[in-house]
Write a protein that binds this DNA or RNA. Structure first.
Length: 615
DNA sequence: TTAGGGTTAG
């Protein structure tokens, strides 16, 4: 505005100012050239451009007779030609060309020019300044609104988040609308940069300012909430948004499902599934993948297989994720035959296995001690052009550790480092627990104590391994010191940490301490799991308190915790030793009904029980 | 044309 005013004032004061006339004439000449023959003549004989100044540039760029793309080519030429640095377009020229491009609906080019403004230290300025220049162009409110929306996006793309939010606030004040789609771009960028707080805050701002939220934004935000553990908040948000006509879809429900599955929240999973049914939201491949994971992690491989079988009835086309998941769980329960069959089926369907798929198979082989098979799979994978990654290396190292082949494990670690991979927190804890299995406790401890000096911060798993060693040694003082140290370092003990302590106390016959710890973990909001209960049940049975054990056994049922072979074995042997043969056999039947395979110890207990009962 | 699902350690 001011420059135009100045211009008019000057014109009044000096109507025959030779420079002004000459400016206009030069502009006319340049424009004419551009109209008739484009940029080329100006490029080859740039003498006309030597007299250029910001005013002339603006006159040319704003001349409606010059085609917008010709203006753009002149603009770009001035921008990039090193001999014309003194004529680089200023902010006003940028806005002028943006205006021309807007009229020509050249939105992509508009964005590029805007990008030039925000990524240039000299041109960058508050949104109000750009808007004020844009308003001078007198192209109506819609133009300015579009410009704001685009500027917002350009800031988001450049990770200039404060500035983007600044544009949003400004637009809001001026009554301009920033599109939901643009807001989503910002949410996504914030999420990708790990700026979760700002992401959640901006979503609140969107809601508050009446942006019409889409299910995509909602789902993204719910996912971020879930990832930081605020599942309840995510669920509440879903409800609140449903009230505003933002209906959750299958992706939204999958997000929630995943959170419940990760937290082993039985009720949550069931609630999410029944909500899906109520809303008539059908499953997709991702839902089935999640459910397979859910049943797999509950040691219910048959239910996982059932989900896999039902995909056809549900009209779902299986993909490589789905196959990887079912292969993974079969491998983990030791059914490599089935895992390999599924792998073949996947290939026959024309799906392409990737490093995750091979990783799942290799893990299955390693957990089953079949290192030869693991090796063959690694070679096959490489021959298909899939590189071994850190996860696969760690899996293999774990395989050798489990077999007690520490030399081979360490050789592989060396090899992995030679390939440019770091020994990471997984490698350290794997090797440490391998050493423990061979009773090489001192080596394990020193590895875990020194890993930080070697540049890898121990996590809760490493600390738990350490605690486990001290507990097995009966050194509870040291174990508790480790807990203090880990808490000092910001690592919070979890259920497995408590399980290590509880098991340690039980093995030393300190049931009272063990129960105290169970209460302590519950007070901290940590759920005792199958391992916690199995240890406690075992301890009570050894102590001869079979009714206490039974109480715990029922508590598991109430809490929807899976009772595995170890749990049943402990309970059955407890009952047997106590001469309660009928109850023991009843549990034996129940165990088989649950699809669990009793092992030798169960039979041994039951036979023993018959003796006890007779005598 | 955007959001969600698959491989490793205690």
């Amino acid at each position: 505005m001011s420059s135009q005013k100045t211009f008019k004032t000057l014109k009044k004061l000096f109507p025959t100012d030779p420079t002004l006339i000459s400016n206009q004439e030069i502009a006319k000449k340049i424009s004419k050239t551009l109209i008739n023959s484009g940029l080329q003549p100006l490029k080859s004989t740039p003498s006309l451009l030597f007299n250029l100044n910001p005013h002339i540039t603006n006159l040319v760029l704003s001349n409606p007779l010059v085609p917008p793309l010709s203006c753009l080519s002149l603009f770009n030429f001035l921008q990039t030609n090193p001999s014309l640095t003194s004529h680089k377009p200023n902010l006003q020229a940028h806005v002028a060309i943006i205006c021309r491009l807007y009229q020509a609906k050249k939105f992509a080019q508009m964005k590029i020019v805007l990008n030039g403004i925000v990524s240039n230290d000299i041109l960058r300025c508050p949104v109000s300044e750009i808007v004020s220049l844009a308003e001078d162009e007198r192209k109506g409110v819609k133009f300015v609104e579009t410009l704001c929306d685009m500027l917002f996006r350009v800031y988001a793309d450049n990770k200039m988040f404060e500035e983007a939010v600044g544009v949003f606030d400004y637009a809001e004040k001026k009554g301009f609308e920033i599109e939901e789609r643009s807001c989503f771009v910002l949410l996504l960028a914030l999420k990708k940069c790990g700026q979760v707080d700002l992401c959640l805050r901006f979503f609140d701002q969107m809601v508050e300012k009446g942006v019409q939220i889409t299910v995509h934004s909602l789902t993204l935000v719910m996912n971020e909430l879930c990832k930081r553990g605020e599942v309840k908040k995510a669920k509440a948000l879903m409800g609140e948004m449903a009230g505003r006509q933002v209906k959750p879809n299958v992706v939204t429900y999958n997000t929630l499902l995943k959170a419940y599955i990760e937290r082993k929240d039985f009720e949550g999973v069931n609630e999410a599934l029944s909500l899906m049914e109520k809303d008539s939201v059908g499953y997709n491949a991702a839902t089935c993948t999640l459910l397979i994971d859910w049943f797999g992690s509950c040691e219910k491989i048959e239910d996982a297989e059932k989900v896999f079988e039902e995909i056809h009835e549900r009209g779902i086309e299986p993909d490589v994720y789905l196959y990887t998941s079912i292969i993974n769980w079969n491998g983990r329960v030791g059914n490599m035959k089935r895992a390999l069959f599924l792998f073949d089926e996947l290939t026959q369907r024309g799906l392409v296995p990737n490093v995750h798929t091979y990783g799942a198979l290799i893990n299955g082989a390693c957990k089953g001690g079949q290192m030869k098979m693991a090796d063959i799979l690694v070679n096959e994978m490489q021959s298909k052009g899939i590189d071994v990654n850190q996860v696969v290396f760690n899996t293999l190292i774990d395989g050798y550790c489990r077999k007690g082949m520490m030399d081979e494990a360490l050789r592989l670690q060396d090899f992995m480092e030679g390939k440019g991979f770091q020994t990471d927190v997984f490698t350290y804890s794997t090797i440490a627990s391998g050493l423990c299995k061979l009773n090489r406790n001192e080596e394990a401890k020193s590895l875990l104590f020194t890993m930080e000096e070697r540049g890898v911060a121990p996590n809760v798993v490493c600390f738990t391994t350490l605690i486990d060693i001290f507990c097995k040694e009966g050194n509870f003082v040291e174990a508790k010191q480790v807990i203090q140290e880990m808490e000092r370092k910001g690592e919070r003990p979890n259920t497995v940490t408590y399980n290590a302590l509880i098991d340690g106390y039980i093995k030393k016959g300190k049931m009272k301490e063990a129960h105290k710890l169970k209460k302590e973990m519950e007070d901290k909001g940590l759920m005792p799991d199958t391992y916690t209960y199995s240890s406690l049940i075992h301890g009570e049975c050894i102590d001869g308190k079979v009714d206490e054990a039974l109480k715990l056994f029922h508590e598991m049922y109430q809490r929807n915790l899976t009772r595995n072979v170890v749990t049943y074995t402990a309970m059955i042997s407890g009952l047997s030793k106590d001469g309660r043969t009928d109850e023991a056999f009843k549990l034996y039947d129940e165990m088989k009904r649950e699809g669990l395979t009793p092992d030798d110890r169960v039979y041994h207990s039951l036979v023993g029980s018959l003796h006890t009962a007779k005598s």
